[in-house]
Design a protein around this nucleic acid. Sequence first.
DNA 1: CCCGAGAAAGCAAACGTTTGCCTTTGGCAG
DNA 2: CTGCCAAAGGCAAACGTTTGCTTTCTCGGG
Lengths: 362, 362
Amino acid sequence: MRYIEGRMRMGKRKETTMSETPPARVTLAEVAASAGVSVGTASKALNDRGSMREETRARVRAAAERLGFQIDAVARSLQTGRSYTVGMITTDSIGRFSIPVMLGVEDTLGAGQMSVLLCDARDDRIREQYYLKTLLSRRVDGIIVTGRRTDPRPPLAQRPPVPVVYAFMQSADPEDCSVVPDEADGARRAVTHLLDIGRRRVALVAGPERHHSARTRMTSALDTLQDAGSPGTAGGDVPEPLYGEWSEAWGRQAARILLRRDPDLDAVFCASDQIARGLVDAMREAGKRVPRDVAVVGFDDWDVMTAASRPPLTSVDMDLEGLGRQAAELLLSAIDGHPRSGVHLHPCRLTIRASTAADDLD
Amino acid sequence: MRYIEGRMRMGKRKETTMSETPPARVTLAEVAASAGVSVGTASKALNDRGSMREETRARVRAAAERLGFQIDAVARSLQTGRSYTVGMITTDSIGRFSIPVMLGVEDTLGAGQMSVLLCDARDDRIREQYYLKTLLSRRVDGIIVTGRRTDPRPPLAQRPPVPVVYAFMQSADPEDCSVVPDEADGARRAVTHLLDIGRRRVALVAGPERHHSARTRMTSALDTLQDAGSPGTAGGDVPEPLYGEWSEAWGRQAARILLRRDPDLDAVFCASDQIARGLVDAMREAGKRVPRDVAVVGFDDWDVMTAASRPPLTSVDMDLEGLGRQAAELLLSAIDGHPRSGVHLHPCRLTIRASTAADDLD
DNA sequence: CCCGAGAAAGCAAACGTTTGCCTTTGGCAG
DNA sequence: CTGCCAAAGGCAAACGTTTGCTTTCTCGGG
């Protein structure tokens, strides 16, 4: 009945050309019949279970192939209790950072034959609750929570009966499994690189001090400078980081402040590419040559910014796609019964471009 | 058995704190028992079917509430043949344009109680095929195809037995249902706006000529100028559009070309915000004031570009989220048996900012 | 020749709903 | 009091798999 209805709908949809084969769903029973075995045997044959003559297995496989058998995942889920589906909840609206994470997640999950249910909670705990319920109702095998990076977030309200991995963002409960970028590592790489190419008066510019990321990156940068015994900007001391916003405008403003404070500075580490790009623009307009006079490193490795900047920006890449992949792997492993809780730090990479080009040194 | 296993896994996962309630799945049978009715009646009660005393219905509802009953979507799907799930295939890797579309889709679908299965085909027809198969295997009720906008794409290989809507991109088969931005409309709005604020020498800059979008936008802009009887740049004639790339660098280069060609031009319509931003930068560096000397309109309304530009850019907004919503609505309606095939044009909006500020006119 | 051990294949229950049909019940008219 | 009807609710099949158990073969050894 329902099926008929479905086909009528199809028919109505394309009443002009009725040539294509009616997409009849072929079931395991038909395959079995065609191969001359029972349904159970057919199932076992296709799933490589049970024991049977190789010839039989092949016969079933051939029949399945011939009939274009596509297993009904719904029926299988009902029986096995596994849906081969995971839910991905983005707490904020899907943003610039969530996307590569999602891509990575989708990539390894897809390779593992799992599908991803997308839920955009839009920073709304009510929506989040609602989505959590529908995900569980759909019997997902696991859940990945991602979203804008801020301070650790409270864990999912009603602790779900399936594994959960927090990606990019971090659960406040240390027992939960979270994967976050090792921002301290990234900042360290950036500053080390500046020192490596011979810079000694390194200034630091970040976004809002209340942002966890801004503080983490600055702290690590300072530590690295200190460890290296760098004199910093203010004669022998390490420089005071400048906190502001995550905007190009702030980068431009910061450039003016820095040049006033220490006209001889020879490098700046910025906590975002937008800041770095603004800063580079302002430096150029102030007559400073980048990288010859001032080398600049950004953070995020956001192609739009790094490429459009003049010169292109050296930047710290958080490898968000890799992070997403790692999160997915952790989830798969938890689903398989091997949970590995705790906070996992995902290392950063440094992508070197013209704004710190060594061959442009004096 | 499986359940037991599941719980053991849970136990292992948090062997420290075993306080939380074992998340036992409560079935309709338990609800029915608790309400003192049969399973069938319980089902009907919760779904507002059949006929029964209101008191009975209430009793069942209460029981469901009390026990925290969550329907098993898998079992329901198996029975009804509907999964309340749609697949979303992004042909290219999820990009800047797909995202708002996806958000819109997810939004209205989520409101309609449907979930979204995310598939990233990465410009690979093989992957696309694979995903299509798994989606059908999961019995999705419909499919949305989205991705980078280029020329109309060939329809999905094996025409699926469920409705398909192409969003943002367009199927080559006009019988298919596609929703695309009305770029001609957008260009018209942009140029009309420039004329409205009194500009008469309007230049046009676009991306690669081989790009469908570039051509459409330029053609429409030219038409609008012609209709208005504008003299254009070259004394009485309409201006020749400049084709190049979708980059800021090209925008800067175009600015130089334009100024050489007609130093007195008073407006530029750029086919992307990146081009516009580069152009604005170069104009400023060439001593032209924006918008007083030259008014500039971009395309895409990409906040990163429009906001960071000095001054902020007036731009054409394709309302991709709205487009996604429309696509989802068309899909829902097709699923309900009311397909509306053909190409649907989604109108653009113009967001006016300082780069065309009227109060800055002479 | 018989028995027993595997191997091969079949059987049927189970997964948790929905739904068409049947039975029961109660009310009311004749 | 009987009969009839509608309303209320129960029954059981069906959806398409998976899987433990049983049955049927096939051999080889005693």
